[in-house]
Amino acid sequence: MLDDTASRPSHASSDHPVVTAPKVGVLLANLGTPDHYSYWPMRRYLNEFLSDTRVIDYPKWKWQPLLQAIILTKRPFSSGANYKSIWNETLNESPLMTITKQQTSALASRMQDAYGGRVMVDYCMRYGNPSTRSKVDAMVKAGCRKILFFPLYPQYAGATSATANDQFFRALMDQTWQPTARVVDPYFEHPRYIEALAQSVERGYAALSEHPDMLVVSYHGMPKRYLMQGDPYHCQCQKTTRLLRERLGWDESRITTTFQSVFGPEEWLKPYTVDHVADLARQGKKKIAVIAPAFSADCIETLEEINEEIRESFEHAGGESFTYIPCLNDDPAHVDALSAVIAENLGGWV
């Protein structure tokens, strides 16, 4: 348990504000989730997400009328249906929320074992609840004089890591007494992350009677224009795949990198997963497995898009065996990797 002792300095007057014992905060951040799959919660969530200029960088005068008048009128219904198909009805929350809570609990236990009550671990979402601002405020009130902000995106992208960082620093602007802050670097090549990925592939393959002809390593996509503007995401994805292949001891013919979740009319990073798996089936690759290393937790893009839409594309093209290898979630090897990243970034603080 955290030491929440608060007291006034011994030399202070009776009306001096109480001061909480200093702690270090570790704030995990993920993309976010609607509060429910019904229309209005979906609309609020999509409005916040699609209004982020890191995500959609079109001029506001051009984008907002289209978003408000057309997209947010229709899309909450289709997106809500997709969320409903994967919703955790028992806890009334999305799988991303459930898994993020499990990750936070596991990491909090690791930090308690390593540092006792000196480190507080919590989570926030860039969009939706719990908001970054609310969690930063809670950590400061709990006495965190230092906060390590950890966006749970292995590969950096402006539309994920950067916008999460933006929101964190906006939250700091609200604090009278700002804590010292650090942001965790992308961990796309961290040995323990690569090891956790490799172990998940080995477990997935061991459970099959026949090994797949191809492992499709599917990353969330982004407009190609962002790559040309200097975003390192594409390169970091390619390196993750290469390091995973090398750890598995495979040659290049057994693994391929693709990109999913294309949105809008412009060209995105290629090949597109949904098209490429169909091409593989037509080329005689009848058994494939798909893994999604860019996602730290299973979510709408993996449970619905990969395991339903992309699976369907493969099977309609003649594919016979489609295996989805789950995200690392709260797997012990993943918790080991995240704990190692946190420990490295807490150097000099605890």
Rank of each mutant, 00 (worst) to 15 (best):
Q178P: 02
M173T: 09
T302F: 05
P191R: 06
F168T: 02
R75E: 07
D331R: 10
L46K: 03
H36V: 09
D231C: 04
T180A: 15
V140I: 11
G249A: 07
S109N: 14
P34R: 02
E210I: 07
T5F: 14
T73I: 15
L67M: 02
I194K: 06
R44D: 13
S253D: 05
A106R: 01
D122T: 15
F168D: 07
Y127V: 06
P76H: 04
A106G: 01
Y226L: 14
S131Y: 00
F49G: 10
P326L: 10
Y127T: 03
E309P: 03
G128E: 00
F295P: 07
P65A: 12
V217F: 04
A196S: 09
N47W: 11
C144N: 00
P9H: 11
A281K: 06
A6Y: 07
G347V: 10
T104V: 07
V26C: 13
D174P: 08
A162W: 07
F77L: 13
D330M: 08
L248Y: 00
T5R: 14
W250V: 02
K146A: 05
D231I: 02
A292V: 04
W268R: 10
K224D: 07
G128H: 05
R203I: 03
C237P: 01
D113P: 04
G230Q: 05
A340R: 05
V274D: 11
D35H: 09
N129G: 10
H220D: 05
S161M: 11
A138R: 07
K287I: 02
Q64C: 12
T176H: 14
P154K: 06
Q64E: 13
L227M: 11
A196R: 02
F188E: 06
K74G: 14
G284A: 10
